[in-house]
Every structure is written in C-alpha cells, then in structure tokens.
Design a protein around this nucleic acid. Structure first.
Lengths: 247, 247
DNA sequence: CGATATGTTGAACATTCTCAAGGGATGTGG
DNA sequence: CCACATCCCTTGAGAATGTTCAACATATCG
C-alpha cells in the first residue's frame, strides 16, 4: 500500500481504507446499500476535482493519493485549509455547492457516492452518521491545531511541523512504529507547502535549506526527505511534548 | 437578550438558544430526557471553566456570555482556537479529557449535561446526533475560514476581520438586519484579540488606532466600537464578497 | 533544442515583534 | 482623601523576521 498508488479496490473487503473511511463502522448489509450509490473515479495529479461554487453531485472518500482543500483570495493568495489523505472524506452532506477547491496533489482514486441518496442513507444508517461525526470532530481538532501552527509558529517551526506530520502519517500508513530514523517522499511542491503554511515559496525553500544545513533533515533530490532523528524534528517544530495528536 | 446577560432560563421553551443549540431539533419528549441530565452553571468573567487535560464530567451549551477556547504553547504563547458564543457547544462526546482551556471572557451561563448519559442519548436520539454533526461541520468551516485569516491576512486585515465578525454576530443576536451603521462593545481585551489573531498586543493596539485614524471605526472609550460603514469594514478585512459565511 | 515547471539563492525592503516608557482607569489601605 | 498598586492600553525606536523582486539552476517534455 502506497500513498500515491492508483489501484481501484476489488471489493470493500479488501479496500485499503475499509477501516478508516466513513464506511468504517458499516455492517455487510450497510456496505451493500452504499455499493448501490457508489462509483470509483481516478484523477490525474494536478487536476482540480472540484471548484469552489460547483454544484456538488457527490461526496467521496479518498482511497489513495493526496488532495488539497484550498481557498483563493481575490488578491491571488491561496490558503490551503486541509490536506486530504487516504480515508478522508470530501464534501458536506446537506450542502449544495462546494466551499473550497479540491485539487489532486498526486494521482487520486476516489470512492464517490451520489450525494442525494447518500444524505438519505445518513439518516437511516446511524453507523455512517456516527463515523462521519467522529471524522468531522477529528478534522476540527486538526484545523485547530493548524491554527496554532499558522498563528504562533516561526517559518522554521512551520516547516518542521509539516515535515513531522507527513513523516508520521507516512509511518502510520506503512504500519511502521515511529522510529528514530524515517524517510519519505514529499507529496507537495514548495509552492503547495507555502500555501499550507501561510508563507512564500521562497521562505519555504530557504527554511528547508536551513534545516538541511543544520542536519535536522537530509535530502535526496528535491523531494525525498530523510529524518535521522524524529525527536529532533519534533523539537524544531516547537511541540516538545510528543506531538502524537497533531493531526 | 444580551450577549453578556447571566439569566438562567425558566424552561427550554423560553430558552434563548432553544433553536440554535445542540437541542435545536429535539421534540418535547427528547427535551425531557435531556432535562434529566442537565444542570445550569454560571461562571464569572475571567474564570477558567476547563483546563487542558481535565477529566470532562460534562458537555455543555453556552446559554449566554462569551468563552474562549485556547491552547498554550510551552514557550508561553497562547493561540485562541475558537470563540464560543451563545448556542455553541463545549466538549467532545467520547473524549475523556479536555483538549483546550475554556475561559469565560464575560460572565457565562452554561447548560451542562453529564457526559456519560449524554453520550448514550446521542446514540439513541438521532435528532441530537444530527444537530451535533451540523454544528461541528459549521465549526469546521469557521476554523478553516480562520486559517485563511491567520495564514494570509495582514495585521490590519486581521483586526478588520475580527471586528466584522463581532459586529455581524452582535447584529444577528439583536435581530437587526446588517445595516450600514453598527455599534457594539468589544468583549475581548487587546491581549485576547492578539491571541485570537496571532499577533502581539501592541500590534493590535496600533492597528486599532490606525483604523480609527482612517475613520473605518470610531471608539467611545476603549471598548465601544462604532462602525459607520460596514461595507468599508468588510473591504478592509480583505473579503470583498459579503463575508456572510465567515463564522 | 527551446519551453515550461520547479527549486535555490541574494539583496533590498516592509511588516511585525521586542523592549521600553508612560497614560488613564479602578481599587485598596493608611 | 491621598498614596500606591494593578490592569489595560498606547506609543516610540530599533531589531528581527519574512516578503518582494530578480537572477539563475535543474529537470522534464514536446
């Protein structure tokens, strides 16, 4: 299982996100109901899946790949407000039009549900509603954590925070225990990192260079990051406590 | 009805937040169930209601007054991650310990529910679970909007954004249509505004002085704000669109 | 090969922070 | 009633941080 693979699952049973997504709590008969309104969709890296203001015909789970949730201001600045990883949910039941752009950062496989019937299912199927509430509460925590990053951290701490999050989620996905020594591919361009962190692309580049110079990280090429000491990275991020609940 | 009054409602029927809070969708019999596990609690301005890490014995609705949700970093910086106004919900079902400090900004009346029985009620009462999901989704939108404020706005725009939000929520509470001319009391100290906006107290003070100098706002004393032209204020906030969904 | 997208680095500049001083209010004890 | 402390707020000057503008490097792709 890879963060950016694009295989469509054969069935819910062997689906990579079976136990993380909105369907996590569903019984077999409930999965059948979902199956009736579901279809898979693949998206190429760089494509915009949904534009702000679009009418939403579906909601979806990210099966594989990474997408970003962004808002664009009229002066051209972009703020990323969420990073969607496998298992994450796209769309808001009850909402007609999209509030954010959804852009495929990597190749993407989505498990889409037609919106209207999905909304009916929510009412009838407490297991879906409960899981959705739980996921939304988790996202709210993540958003609030990110408010602290945006509001109170320096550029260097912001970069370290983002690297720590990606490192940890990557480790979790590979079922590695979080060891001292980690490595991963950065799924984001410098510009996308800047949009997420509320910085400019240049500042991102400079701070990554600085972390490299100080041996907090090492790079192979532009995108492959090696973290020799995860605790050191967490320390640079400014959350000395273990940071285990960062997203 | 006042943002900072401290009257305890006689019954759910005449409760000021009857149609906004987590109980908004409840039928009379469901209200009775809630009534069994509920108690009112008043808090003085400045008191901390809940400390991060506290065991949560209850969840609650804010009936009147204003509270803030804050995180404190080990270096002493504080980031406010939410402003709790009448109708807003405190606590997370299923969570044992508090993730944030909750501080009474003004005098506060809370409608508390014992947590364990409330969690059972959620499972049994879809009207509560649905409303809670809806409220959580709204809060998530607000948090994401705030990410844009923290990540991409200048100090001046941040202050204008906060004033616009308070002005609009105040107008909504007084059932005024949002007119050109508005006024209200600032419920936050300069320091609390700084914590919310990711600025220093001094920068907040300077920018308020600047907005006053430029006649975007007028002050009576330190806390009473007069907004002669709401659209001008919105413009200064950097969301030219009407900003109707800002919180 | 040129065109495009991505990333790095430098120098000047702007914004915000830090440190410092001081100005009302309000409250308290002598 | 005055002296004094405390809290909240304002303002200034210099320093730090991050941005802007610009040049250039590197890789990919037609």
């Amino acid at each position: 299982m890879d963060l950016t693979s694009t295989q469509i699952p054969h069935s819910c049973e062997n689906c990579a996100i079976r136990h993380q997504a909105v369907c996590a709590r569903c019984e077999p008969n409930e999965l059948e109901r979902l199956d009736e309104i579901k279809y898979y969709r693949t998206v190429e890296a760089g494509q915009t899946v949904i534009w702000t203001g679009d009418r939403m015909e579906f909601v979806a789970s990210v099966v594989s790949g990474i997408a970003s949730l962004t808002q664009t201001m009229e002066d051209g600045w972009t703020q990323m407000v969420g990073l969607l990883l496998p298992g994450d949910f796209i769309g808001r039941p009850g909402r007609e039009t999209a509030a954010y752009d959804v852009v495929a950062t990597t190749g993407l496989v989505l498990c889409c549900f037609r919106r209207k019937p999905f909304e009916s299912l929510i009412v009838q199927t407490p297991h879906i509603a409960q899981r959705l509430l739980e996921m939304t509460l988790d996202e709210l925590d993540a958003a609030r954590e990110w408010m602290r990053v945006l509001g109170r951290k320096t550029a260097r701490e912001k970069i370290a925070s983002l690297l720590a999050i990606i490192a940890r989620r990557n480790a979790a996905l590979k079922l590695q225990t979080t060891q001292e020594h980690l490595q991963f591919d950065l799924p984001l361009t410098r510009g996308a990192m800047a949009d997420y962190l509320g910085l400019t692309l240049e500042t991102v580049s400079r701070q990554i260079s600085a972390l490299k110079r100080d041996n907090v990280i090492a790079l192979e090429g532009k995108r492959h990051v090696i973290v020799p000491d995860y605790r050191r990275l967490l320390n640079e991020a400014g959350d000395d406590s273990d940071g285990g609940m960062m997203m």
